[in-house]
Design a protein around this nucleic acid. Sequence first.
DNA 1: TATGCCGGGCG
DNA 2: CGCCCGGCATA
Length: 363
Amino acid sequence: MMSWSRNDSNRFQRLSAAGSSIIFHASIPTAEAPGKLKNRDDKKLVSTDKEKNQNGFTTASERLRGHRVAVEPYLSPETLPSLLTSVSVFPPGPCASRFIPPFNSMKVMFKCLWKNCGKVLSTAAGIQRHIRTVHLGRNCDSDWSDGEEDFYYTEIKLNTDEGLGGPSPATPSVLSPPLPPHPHPPPLSHLPPVAGGDAHRSPAQNSIGISVAKDNHGGVCNGRLGGGGGATPLSRSAPSALYLIHADHAYQATAPVSIPSADSGGGGPAVGSFTPTNSFSISWQSPPVTFTGNSVSPCKSQSLGEQRPQTIAVLSSPPRATAAISRKVRGEGKKCRKVYGMENRDMWCTACRWKKACQRFTD
DNA sequence: TATGCCGGGCG
DNA sequence: CGCCCGGCATA
Ligand SMILES: [Zn+2]
C-alpha cells in the first residue's frame, strides 16, 4: 500500500569503467530520424521536460554506457539554450590526452548549421552575414548583430590534403595495438576504419559519430554509435563528422559525467572486473568547474605512443532551468533517525526503521 | 564521520 | 509481504 518514492531517473548508477569520450557532430542533426535534435527555434520546448527528450545525446550517452564511456556535456550560457556536448575518442594506450592536436595543414572554414543549408564560407563575417540575412531574416544594416548567428555556424577545420571529398567519418581504431610515438597525429581521414570489435550502428541519420576506447588496459571496448544509415558504414549524412569542429564558445560550463572504474566497495579487489549493466543518466547541472583535463585515467608510465582524442563540439537542446533536476540531493530536513536518535529507534517511522525513505518527514 | 536510503536478501 | 542490512552517495 505504501510505495517508496524513488527518483530512479535521477539516480546515478555506478558504472564500471574508465574512459571518456567526446561526442561530436558538425551540425545539428535535425533530420527526421531517431535521435534527431531540434533546432532551438523550437522555443516552446525550452525548459520543458520534453525538451530533454529531444536531445539525442542522452540516448547516445545511454548507449555509450554499454561501452563504458563517459560523456561530458558542456553547457552553453543560459542565453543560448543550446548545449554543447563533447565526447572524446580515446584511442587505446595508457595516456590519452584530451587536447586537440595540431593538425597538419588545416584550413579554417565557417559552415552554416542551419537546417538544409550547410553553406560554407571562408570568413566568419561572411557566414554571420549569411545567417543574419538568409536565416534570421535580419535584413537590417550590416553591423547589427546580437550574436545569435554565432550559434548557427561553426568553425570547421579542413584538412587541405584530403579536402571534402572523402566522406569517411572519423573512426579511430581502438582495438589495434598502440601506435608508436608519433609527433603529429595522422589526418582524420587516414584513420583506419573500425577495427574488430562490435560496431554498433544506429539506423538514424542523426546518429552521432562516436567511437570509444577504453584507456584502461584491462578492458577492451570498442563501440561505434551511429555514423551510418542502414547497413552502410558511411552515411551520406554522416560526413559532417569528418570535420574537426571547434566550437569557439569557450564559455561553456562543464558537467562532466564520468564513469567510475571498477569497484570501490569495501575490500573486494575487484579491479578489472566490469559489469556495465546499470542505468545511466546525465545531470545537466553545471558545476562551477571548468575544464580540468583528464579525469579518467592519469597518465602512468609506459612509453607507449600517445594519441589524442578528436574533439568536436555539438549543439543540442538546452537543459536550462534545470537547477532542480540534478542528482538526488539529500533533503535538508532531519529524518527520524536524526530526530529521535539511534537510541529511540522504535520511535522512527517504519520506513526509517527499514532504512527506506522516511515517510514521516518528507521533503 | 553521520545520515539517508536503494537494492537486495531472508522468512 | 514485513523486516533487516550492506553499501553507497551525500552532507
Ligand atoms: Zn522517518
